[in-house]
Design a protein around this nucleic acid. Structure first.
Lengths: 193, 193
DNA sequence: TATCATAATGGACATAATGTCTGGAAATGC
DNA sequence: GCATTTCCAGACATTATGTCCATTATGATA
C-alpha cells in the first residue's frame, strides 16, 4: 500500500506523481467553471482521466484533494517570497509584489483559490497573509499610538486579498508591479493613522 | 399551494411565518457550530422542530433558505442605514457605523454571515458593501488622479469586511463607535493616495 | 530484458442525503 | 363552526459517497 509523500523512499513513483498532478489540475480547472461545492468526485476523475477508485487511494475525499493542492502551491509561493525577500530591501509590505507576480503567472490557480463566486477561499491563504502582515507590522511597532494592532492587520490583509481577487478575476490592465504600487500607496497611508 | 411571500394576500398565514422563522433561525444557529457545508437539511429541521417535508414546501433546498435568510436581514440593515443616512450628514463612509451597530445587535447572524471558518460568506453581502463604497467614491470623484476607482473600491470594501468579521468573531472590546472610528481613519487616509 | 512490487482500473456494494409525493391530522382565517 | 391551508410522517426513486476486490498495466531494479 505504501502510498505516501515523503516517507520511506525519497523518489516518488512516477505514476503517483502523474495521477496526483492530474487530479490537482483537474480540480483547479473545474472550480472556475462550476464552483467548488458543485464539483463531484466523478467530475474530477473524468476531467483528469483517472479511475474513481484511484482517486480514493490518494485522497480521502474532495476536501483532502483541495487541501493538498493548495498546500503544494503555497509552498511554491513561499519559496518565491523568500527569494524576493533578500533582493528588495525595505519595502513596507514585502509579501505583496511576489504574490501579485505569482498570481500573474498562475492565474487559473489563484482564480480558483480566491473565487469569491461561491464557497472556496481557503482559510489557509487568508491566515498566511495575515501572518505576513502581522510580522511586518509588529516589526514597525504599529499599535503604540492608540491603534489596536490586530485591527490594522485585519484591515490590511482583507484589503490585499480583495484587491488580489479582483485583479485576478478581471485581469489585467495593470501589471503586477503597478498593482503592487497602488496597494503599497493605499496601505502605507492607511497605517499612518 | 399559494405559498409566497408578498403575493395575493397582504397578511401571511401565521404558520408560514412561524415555520420560516424557525428554519431561518435554526440555520443561523447551526452555521457557527458546524459550518454551512456540513449542515444537512435534516439537521435544520430537527433544530427548528419542523418536518422535513415541510421544509421543501417553503424552500427548494438549503441554498434557497440561506439566500432568503440573508435577504431578509439585509433588508433590515438597509432600513437602518437609510435612517442613519439622514441623521449624520457628511461622514465619509456612511455605511460603516450602521453596519457595526447592526452587527453588535445581531451578533450570531453576522457571525454566520461572515464566518471565515469555511465556506459561507454570501456574495450578496460583499456586493452590497462594494456598491455602497462605489457610490460614495464616485460622488467624491476619486480616481481622477491616477488611482483606478475600482481598485480603491475593492480595497476599501475588502478591508471593511475583514475588520467586521474579525470584530464579530472576537468581540468586543471595541464599541461600534470605536470600531467605526478606527475604520474611518484608516480608510480615509488610504483614499488620499 | 526479465522480474517483482506497486499502482491503476472497473465493477459491485453498502450507506447516506436529496428531493418528490401522498393521505390524513391539525392549525388558521373568516 | 367551517372551509382552507399548512403541517407532518412515512414511503419512494435518485444520486453521490466511500470501500473493497480481482485483474490488468506500469514503473523500478538488477
Amino acid at each position: 500500500m505504501k502510498i505516501e509523500g515523503a516517507g520511506e523512499r525519497n523518489t516518488i513513483d512516477r505514476r503517483v506523481a502523474r495521477t496526483r498532478g492530474l487530479l490537482q489540475d483537474a480540480l483547479i480547472a473545474l472550480i472556475p467553471e462550476q464552483g467548488y461545492a458543485a464539483i463531484k468526485v466523478d467530475d474530477i476523475c473524468q476531467r483528469a482521466n483517472v479511475g474513481r477508485s484511484t482517486f480514493y487511494t490518494h485522497y480521502a475525499d474532495k476536501d483532502a484533494l483541495r487541501s493538498a493542492t493548495i498546500e503544494a502551491h503555497l509552498r511554491s509561493i513561499g519559496r518565491r517570497r523568500e527569494a524576493a525577500s533578500q533582493a528588495a530591501g525595505s519595502r513596507l509590505f514585502e509579501f505583496s509584489l511576489p504574490m501579485f507576480e505569482h498570481a500573474h503567472a498562475f492565474r487559473p490557480l489563484h482564480h480558483a483559490l480566491l473565487a469569491s463566486s461561491g464557497d472556496t477561499i481557503h482559510d489557509e491563504l487568508r491566515e498566511r497573509i495575515r501572518r505576513a502582515v502581522r510580522e511586518e507590522l509588529v516589526e514597525k511597532r504599529i499599535g503604540d499610538r492608540g491603534m489596536p494592532a490586530e485591527f490594522a492587520i485585519q484591515f490590511i490583509a482583507g484589503a490585499f486579498l480583495a484587491v488580489l481577487a479582483w485583479w485576478v478575476a478581471t485581469d489585467m490592465n495593470l501589471s503586477p508591479a503597478q498593482a503592487d504600487d497602488l496597494f503599497q500607496r493605499m496601505a502605507g497611508k492607511g497605517i499612518e493613522a
